[in-house]
Amino acid sequence: MMSEVPSDRAATTGRPRPRPAHLSKGALVVPAVLVVLGIFLVVGTATMDVVGEGGLFGPTVMPWAVAAICFVVAVFLAVDILRPRPEYDPAFGAGSRAATDSSDGSYEAGPDTVNAPAVGTAIGGVVVFIAVLPWLGWILSATLLFTAVAIALGNRKFVTCLLAGLALASVIQIVFSGLLGISLPAGFVGGF
């Protein structure tokens, strides 16, 4: 989902608020990802086994350009995230390290809090799904995935989740494999 960056102008009035998530130190993950992608491109392009001559613009020109974009944007984004924001930081400490840290502290309690256990459960559910798919087959793996995500979103009726997941996975198997012939992994069931 695209989210709008809240307008700075609107925030100038009223008492200072905690820094929102996208300006917190955690947001530095994004420039970090860009740097990693840039390095990925540089390494990949430098070691690329170029086929043929490729003409004036070979297969390496665009990667170099995009790598440069990645690094430049990462720097600008990091500056944008870290730069002092009087509207969020306490007025007297504007720009100082301490002020930034304290705003980080208050952000922990703010509405942007990330429910880490829930995210872990959801991601873990997908990881397990991928790992067991070839062995358990589509029906059971998808049931597990469904249950994991439902629990991550706060559902505590474990049995109902399992049953609902089993129903959905079965319907998909019947309709798409049975009626339309898309192949889904059968897992150990296929051994019979």
């Binding site: 129903a167 079965s170 319907v171 494999s177 889904l184 069931v189 019979f192």
Partner: peptide, 19 residues
């Protein structure tokens, strides 16, 4: 209902499997 669905689905999976 879920049991019936599951049985049908497993039958299908077993049919589409190897062997």
């Amino acid at each position: 209902l879920v049991a019936a669905l599951a049985v049908t689905a497993f039958t299908d999976a077993a049919r589409s499997g190897e062997g």
